[in-house]
Design a protein around this nucleic acid. Structure first.
Lengths: 351, 351
DNA sequence: ACTTTTTGTGCAAACGCTTGCAGAAATTAT
DNA sequence: ATAATTTCTGCAAGCGTTTGCACAAAAAGT
């Protein structure tokens, strides 16, 4: 706050050293909390740092082999609450630490994704968070070689490579929701998948199918419609279901957002949710409790996933010897207002 | 993709130079698109870079005086859609550029805010985006000295310093909404302020007051309640209005989120929106059209503000001589379902 | 043909820090 | 008292770039 260095306007380690009457390596040592520094010296240096308002230059620090104090986060986009919720969790945790967050979205650009990763691992971040990465294979190798700790969020990792992962019980969540619908009396339940290349989408589909079969029903391919987690695909899928000779009395969408789309289609067709068709989503994004009727859905603890993932990278940055960890968080069925027994449904055929 | 450097595992400029048979400065020059490089040489170097999979080390690059290719973004939090929407705008624009985004939230920690800024300006970012900064005075000086371009989003800047800013027509927006309510027949309109230290909150209040007066009404202090843009403050404010001897027939909240809180209070008290009380918000965050009844609100183009702000910093990073610019974007009243004439309101007293 | 200017390239010195090595000082063991 | 440790501090060599300076080569003036 008081004096300034003349050249760049920044106080460097050298200025502090001069002020404290020690060598610059000693300053570096107190900054890095090195063991062998005389308490007395340490104090003098700290006083000098305070007096000059010293702030470490991260570029230099990490160039020289230290930490950059930033963790990178790569996600597909920021448009849906799904991603935002995870970011919120990450932010909450990062904020409590000495680290900063470097956020990057890939959108559709496959090439940029891997270029970005090398860019960052080589130059910018101490650790990485990947949310539902699409082309993981393209850079895991790099990541491993660089020894940059990373954790995958909502992605089980790829075969042959043990990665730190944090996922939710997708299969169980889908199973539970389907069972709930069956218990309510539904037997024809339409399912809208997520982006089917994604593991969680596959697991949800499998959970749905298992529940159907376990209850002695038949998995009707007509009732499974491909989607991509987004609203439009939910809308289209629901329209298709509605045009069936015998439409389902319930629809289970692989994401809340696609459930919103489905509800819109049902609404436009002049039917009622949940009277004619029950709807269940997956995720429990904030909007789900804003819309009317409020969406019944399988809650995935997105924030917690973000927080936990952050804690995991941070821990591994501090101590790279920590073992690989794969955490699976439980989902829970949140019952709200979009489901009911199909007895009064226009689509319920007499038994 | 083919070969790798032995020591760190990273391909450096020196490796490329060796491979291409030129000096490393020449490589640097082609990387930086320097003018005086023989086309032939440039080609050889580029080929070598491709062959070795060279990726510039940003730390080194910026340490040595170049760009770090990252812009910092500082915001209070990520919990409300207000902030997220702006981030989305920023992201959309950043994604189209060669830059990355470093995101940081300050939450309540005043001290960290300015420490963070120096940290980053000294070491990490080429430009800065501030969303509704709280303690701007603490670092504008630093910013100016460091010559780091920055733009303030939803903040008019501080006296005596010309900053790049991007704001919305807060006064006019509030005026329009109030006028709309008056045109509907309301005369007792409760107003819930935002965090009153913030300029936009003051402007909205002023807009409201002007409209009241311009219509020949009296600004009743009883009908102005302090808030902080957040849900709880809206809830409390509405409760207070409801407990008045003569409650207002309409409430205008300085943010959508506080409007949500107000609606919750009205709901809990057993009254109906908009039959008994009309409600208007400000911002038009996505949730506003999800809730039922859908919120009538003053739309602030948050995404556009983020995008535009990003374009502004980016331009100033590339060309620091660009003049300071202060952009004000228009708000627009979005009429949805939370307002109606007060004739049937329980709170309408006979004239 | 001979300056002058424009291009093109290399060397070396930063940028601000970390860290291995070496030696000095203080502490403990013998 | 002397040797062996442990603690503390400074020096110097990097980390991977950018960039000013010097000089060579090519192009343009005269």
């Amino acid at each position: 706050m008081t004096q300034e260095n003349q050249s760049t306007g920044n106080v460097t380690i050298v200025d502090v050293a001069r002020e404290a009457g020690v060598s610059y390596s000693t300053v570096s040592r107190v900054v890095n909390n090195f063991k062998y520094v005389k308490p007395d010296t340490r104090e003098r240096v700290e006083a000098a740092m305070d007096r000059l308002g010293y702030v470490a230059n991260l570029k230099a620090r990490s160039l020289a082999g230290g930490r950059s104090q930033v963790v990178g986060m790569l996600l597909y986009e920021l448009d849906t609450s799904y991603h935002v919720e995870i970011v919120r969790g990450v932010d909450a945790e990062i904020t409590n630490s000495e680290y900063d967050l470097m956020l990057s979205t890939t959108h559709k650009r496959r090439r940029k994704e891997s270029a970005y990763v090398t860019q960052l691992t080589q130059g910018m971040v101490d650790g990485f968070l990947f949310v539902l990465p699409r082309y993981l294979e393209a850079y895991t190798e790099d990541l491993d070689r660089q020894q940059v700790p990373y954790v995958l969020i909502d992605h089980p990792g790829i075969d042959g490579i043990k990665s730190n992962t944090i996922t939710a019980t997708n299969w169980q969540g889908a199973y539970d929701a389907t069972q709930y619908l069956i218990d309510l009396g539904h037997s024809r339940i339409g399912f809208i998948t997520g982006t089917i290349e994604v593991a969680s989408a596959q697991e949800r589909l499998a959970g749905y199918q298992s529940a159907i079969r376990d209850n002695g029903f038949f998995v009707d391919p007509e009732l499974i419609c491909k989607g991509d987690f987004l609203e439009d695909s939910g809308y289209e899928a629901a329209k298709k279901f509605l045009s069936l000779a015998e439409p389902p009395t319930a629809i289970f969408a692989s994401s809340d957002v696609s459930a919103f789309g489905a509800i819109r289609a049902i609404d436009e067709a002049g039917y009622l949710v949940p009277q004619d068709i029950s709807v269940v989503g997956f995720d429990d994004v904030p909007e789900s409790s804003y819309i009317r009727p409020r969406l019944t859905t399988v809650r995935q603890p997105l924030r917690e996933m973000g927080q936990l993932a952050t804690r995991m990278v941070l821990a591994r940055i501090e101590d790279p010897t920590l073992p690989v960890e794969q955490v699976e968080l439980p989902t829970v069925l949140i019952i709200r207002d979009t489901c009911q027994s199909p007895v009064d449904s226009k689509f319920m055929r007499a038994v």
